[in-house]
């Protein structure tokens, strides 16, 4: 199968300005994206997300590796590859603040070789679709941050490319605006059938919009899973056991010798211990272990692990073993 995005072993290192120390921002990242897929690139600050996206846009040259966009090697035929990509870069760096919304849209489509006349109707349609018609003739610097982000997205959509890269699209937005932009991106993914690669450290954005998530940390991919699989995997494997007694250190150690377990509460009356298991049959082994230790279980709850916790655990490396076991 030919992938619309094919990245093989990209590496990027920088020299720090003052100390001349070499920083390895990306240490051999490889992944592929299918046509029409919506993929999230998730990672903490400094993980290498923006560097990866910039290399995919040809704004940064990798030290090693290849990036193919629709079969075109961006390192060799950058301009040809750019015909397939539009990008919403991080922050307020996508628009001319002293131009109006419409002028920005016209200018950027001109930069892609489209005439003002050719895109006029499309601009009207997009402004209407994004609820920006009443702001069309207002200068961008008078718009709210959320509105500006919407205009940036409109610029990307106007290019009519198959691929859209979004670098931290909700960064710096308040909760309400972030929700609005999230909803817009979700609708775009559904309606326009674009291949979207979105980088973020905002978990709900990725959870809500993306089908697949690539988690990157310290310049390496630590996980590449479908969002639903990741959630399912961690959602069903953690249980909270409430016992009507104080769990002794000896008993706790015994449980921890067999399973990944954490004492959540020990208030002198009750103890709550969360056990994370790899296989479903381990659940019965936990019950047996409690029985062997003569500990009466009062309650068993399935712990709900949200995407944020999954992400944190993967980034900390705690869940690498579990992922490896399931892949």
């Amino acid at each position: 199968m030919e992938y619309i995005i094919d990245i093989q072993g990209i590496k990027k290192s920088y020299k720090k300005r003052k100390s001349k120390e070499i920083i390895q921002a990306v240490k051999g990242v490889s992944f592929q994206v299918k046509r029409g897929e919506v993929v999230g690139l998730l990672g903490p600050n400094g993980a290498g997300k923006t560097t990866t996206i910039k290399m995919m846009c040809g704004l940064l040259l990798p030290n090693e590796g290849t990036i193919k966009i629709n079969g075109i090697d961006i390192g060799k035929q950058r301009l040809k590859a750019l015909r397939h990509i539009s990008t919403v870069l991080e922050g307020n760096r996508n628009l001319y603040w002293r131009l109006t919304v419409r002028e920005n849209l016209e200018y950027f489509s001109g930069n892609r070789g489209l005439s003002k006349k050719a895109v006029s109707a499309q601009i009207d349609e997009l402004l209407e679709r994004l609820n920006l018609t009443h702001k069309a003739n207002e200068m961008v610097n008078s718009l709210s941050r959320g509105m500006q982000q919407k205009v940036s997205i409109a610029v990307a959509l106007l290019s009519n490319t198959e691929i859209i890269f979004l670098d931290e699209p909700t960064l710096g937005l308040d909760i309400e605006t972030s929700y609005e932009v999230r909803k817009l991106l979700k609708d775009i993914a559904k309606e326009y059938n674009k291949t979207i690669l979105l980088s973020s450290h905002d978990m709900p954005v990725v959870q809500e919009i993306c089908e697949r998530v690539i988690i990157i940390n310290e310049g390496r991919i630590v996980s590449d899973e479908r969002v639903s699989d990741l959630l399912e995997l961690f959602d069903t494997k953690a249980y909270s056991f409430t016992v009507n007694s104080v769990l002794s250190d000896k008993n706790l150690k015994e449980i921890q010798n067999h399973f990944m377990a954490e004492l959540e509460l020990n208030d002198g009356m009750q103890s709550v211990i969360t056990v994370t298991i790899t296989h479903s049959e381990d659940f019965y082994k936990v019950i047996n272990l409690f029985e062997e230790m003569n500990i009466e279980i009062d309650k068993v709850d399935r712990s709900i692990i949200d995407f944020e916790q999954v992400f944190l655990k993967i980034v900390k490396g705690e869940m690498k073993r579990e992922i490896a076991a399931t892949v």
Partner: peptide, 18 residues
Amino acid sequence: QLGTLEQMYMSPMGAWRI
């Protein structure tokens, strides 16, 4: 200074032509 230089470089026309 405006921060739009990278966006200009995203043009398939090539920055030098612009």
